[in-house]
Design a protein around this nucleic acid. Structure first.
Lengths: 334, 334
DNA sequence: ACATAGTATACAATCGTTTGCATTTTGTGA
DNA sequence: TCACAAAATGCAAACGATTGTATACTATGT
C-alpha cells in the first residue's frame, strides 16, 4: 500500500545524478532550465516528495516552527476562548506561506520542558509561545540559552525575550476614553491585574480616567479570569449590592459577554443604561447581542509578525518586540 | 548560543560505544541496568536530547501525527467555533501521552494536498482529519493510497475510511425526545443538512418525532451554518413571520446561542416559552444564559480514540470506525 | 583451570538528502 | 579546428542516529 519513492530512483528515471535532482527540486540556478523542468515533471508524475527527516538532518533545519500553547490549571475554561484557535490559524497560515510546518504542543502540566524539547531535538527551528502569564521567569531562563523564540503577550520591562502583542496600555486607554466620551462616569473594570496583559490594560484604564479628571473608585474592579457563569454571578452580585455603574471595560470579550448577560438579567439595557467595551475582537464579538464594541488585537497580523520575527531571528538578525495594530472596533454596545 | 551535543560525544564521555548509548536511551533490555542509568544520568547532565530528524530517518518513522483542520471558505467564521480548539487540545494531549508530536496544518485553499504532503514527505506517520463536510470523495481517493488516517465526523455509508464521531442520529434523537417529553410540539430545526453530520442529526430529529406520532412541518427547518448575526436575524425573521414554536433543536451550540438571543429579543423566555437544545457541549455552553442543554460529543474521548485508532493502524491492525459517547447534557434551557 | 553458555558491549552498514569540489560538456572567439 | 572560459553535471562525504552481527567479557559447572 505504501510504496516509497526515493530521490535515487527519480534520478535513475531522469538519467541524471541524484545531486542534480536535488538541485533541480530546490530550484538551484546552476541546473539547466530544461533539465530542471524535466526533473520536476517526472517528480510530479511519479508522485515523488522529498523526505523531510532526511532533508532536515542534512540541512540541520527542520523547516518547522513549534508552537506552545500553555493552558495551565484552568485548562478547560481557557480552552474555550476562541482567541487561541484564531491564533493557531493565523500562525499556521503565516508559517505555511513561508513553507514551514507547525508543530503544536499543549503542555499538560506546567513541567514546562516543552520549549526546550522542541528546540533541542531539532524538531523545530524556533518556537512561538502563546502567553506569558506567570511564566516570565521561566521564559527568561530559556532566553539565556536559546534566542530563537517569540512570545505573544504584553511588553513587560523585565522580560528579556522578544514579544509581539497589542499595545495593552493604549488598548485600555482608547477603550476607556470611548466610554468617557459617551458620558460614562462610573466604570467597572473586569479582569485580573495579576496577569501582565491585564495589568497593562488596567493602567491604560486608570490613565484615561485621570486625564479626564475622574477619580477611579478602586472597588470598581472585579478580579476574574475566564468569563462564564462565575463572571455572570460576580457582576450580578456587584449590581445587587447597590453599586451604580454606567460603563464596563472588560479585559476580554468572554468577560464582556457574561457581563452583558448579567446586566440584562438585572433589567439594565446595553448600551442604553450601561455601555460595555471588551477586548480581543474574537469572531463572535460582532455577532453578540448587541454587537460588542471591543479592542482589536489583530490576531492575524500578530500571527504573521511572530512568524516573521522568528524567521528573522533564525537568520541571525537582531529583532525588537512589536505591537500589533491596536484599535477600537466600535459596535452597538457602547 | 546554540551548542549541539551529539550522541557520539555523550558516548565518549560515558566511555562506551555510541550504539550502547542509543540502546540505553531507548531502554533496550540488553544493556546492563547500571550502564543504562549511568548513561541516562550523563545525558541529563549535559542536556542531551536525541536528534529527531536523524532518528526519524533511520527508524523510518517521524513519531509524529499530522492534524488537518480544513476551514474552507467561511474560514473566519468557522474558526471561532471553540469546538476545533478543544479538538486540537484533546488530540495534542493524546498524542503527547504516546510520545508523538503533532503537526498541525490549516490548509488555506481547498487545494487539499495537505494530507498527502504530510504523509509522502514522511513528516507524519499518520494523520487525523477534522471534519469531512464536502470532502468525502477526496478522502475516499486518499484512502485508496494511504490507509493511515482517521477522520472526525459522522459515519457515512459510502465513506471508505475510518471515522470517529458522535452517534449523530442518536444525538438528534435524544435531543428531540427530550424536547418532546417536556411538551414541545412545534420544534424548529437549525442547521444545514447538506453537511453529513447535520443530515444525520436531522434524521434523528425526524425519527424521534415520527415515533411520537408528530408530523414535522418541513418548513420548520432553517438552513444555516455558522451562527452569529445571520442566524440571529434568520430566527427573528422566522418568528416575526408569525411562526409559532415551542422548541428549537440547533445542530451546534453556536447556532443555539444566537437563536436564544433572537428569542429573547422577540420577548420570549427560555426555557419558559421555548425550549432549546444545542449540539457540541462546548466549554461556553454551561455558562450561557440560561445554561445550554446540549448533546455532548465528548471531544476529549474523541481525540483519544482517534489517536488510538491511528496508532493501531500504523501497527498494521485492522480497525473499525467508532462512536464517542453521545449523551444529553441537561441544563436550564430545556 | 577450562570449555561453554550467557550477557554486555563494539563494529559497521544504513536511512535519504544536500553540497563542496572535481569533472565533463557546451559555447565562444580566433 | 583549437584553446579556454563558463555552464552543467557527477562524485563522494557528510548529517546523527539505529540495529544486525560479531566480539569480548562473566560466571558457572566440572
Amino acid at each position: 500500500m505504501n510504496k516509497k519513492v526515493t530521490m535515487l530512483e527519480l534520478a535513475k528515471i531522469a538519467r541524471v545524478d541524484i545531486s542534480t535532482v536535488s538541485r533541480a527540486l530546490n530550484n538551484s540556478p546552476v541546473v539547466k532550465e530544461s533539465t530542471r523542468r524535466r526533473i520536476q515533471r517526472i517528480a510530479e508524475e511519479i508522485g515523488y516528495a522529498v523526505n523531510a527527516p532526511a532533508s532536515s538532518l542534512r540541512r540541520k533545519s527542520a523547516r518547522a516552527i513549534g508552537m506552545v500553547i500553555p493552558l495551565d490549571q484552568e485548562a478547560e475554561q481557557t480552552m474555550s476562548d476562541p482567541f487561541y484557535l484564531e491564533m493557531v490559524g493565523a500562525v499556521s497560515q503565516a508559517a505555511a506561506d513561508r513553507d514551514y510546518d507547525l508543530v503544536v504542543t499543549v503542555p499538560r502540566d506546567a513541567r514546562q520542558v516543552a520549549e526546550r524539547r522542541l528546540l533541542n531535538t531539532g524538531r523545530a527551528d524556533g518556537i512561538i509561545v502563546i502567553g506569558q502569564a506567570a511564566r516570565i521567569e521561566r521564559l527568561n531562563e530559556l532566553a539565556e540559552v536559546h534566542s530563537n523564540f517569540v512570545v505573544w503577550g504584553g511588553r513587560i520591562k523585565r522580560a528579556k525575550y522578544t514579544t509581539v502583542g497589542s499595545d495593552n496600555v493604549k488598548g485600555g486607554h482608547i477603550a476607556t476614553t470611548h466610554l468617557l466620551e459617551r458620558g460614562a462616569k462610573r466604570i467597572l473594570f473586569l479582569g485580573d491585574p495579576e496577569l501582565p496583559e491585564v495589568k497593562l490594560r488596567y493602567d491604560g484604564f486608570l490613565k484615561a480616567q485621570k486625564e479626564a479628571g475622574i477619580s477611579h473608585d478602586p472597588s470598581y474592579l472585579l478580579r476574574m479570569n475566564f468569563g462564564g457563569r462565575t463572571t455572570y454571578n460576580q457582576v450580578l452580585e456587584f449590581l445587587r449590592a447597590g453599586n451604580e455603574i454606567d460603563g464596563i471595560f472588560a479585559s476580554s470579550d468572554l468577560l464582556a459577554n457574561s457581563a452583558i448577560h448579567a446586566l440584562v438579567a438585572k433589567g439594565l439595557s446595553v448600551p442604553g443604561d450601561v455601555r460595555v467595551v471588551g477586548y480581543d475582537n474574537i469572531g463572535q464579538a460582532s455577532m453578540m447581542t448587541p454587537p460588542l464594541t471591543t479592542v482589536s488585537q489583530n490576531i492575524a497580523q500578530g500571527g504573521q509578525m511572530m512568524v516573521e520575527l522568528l524567521l528573522a531571528k533564525l537568520e541571525g538578525e537582531k529583532v525588537n518586540s512589536r505591537f500589533t495594530k491596536t484599535e477600537l472596533i466600535v459596535r452597538d454596545s457602547a
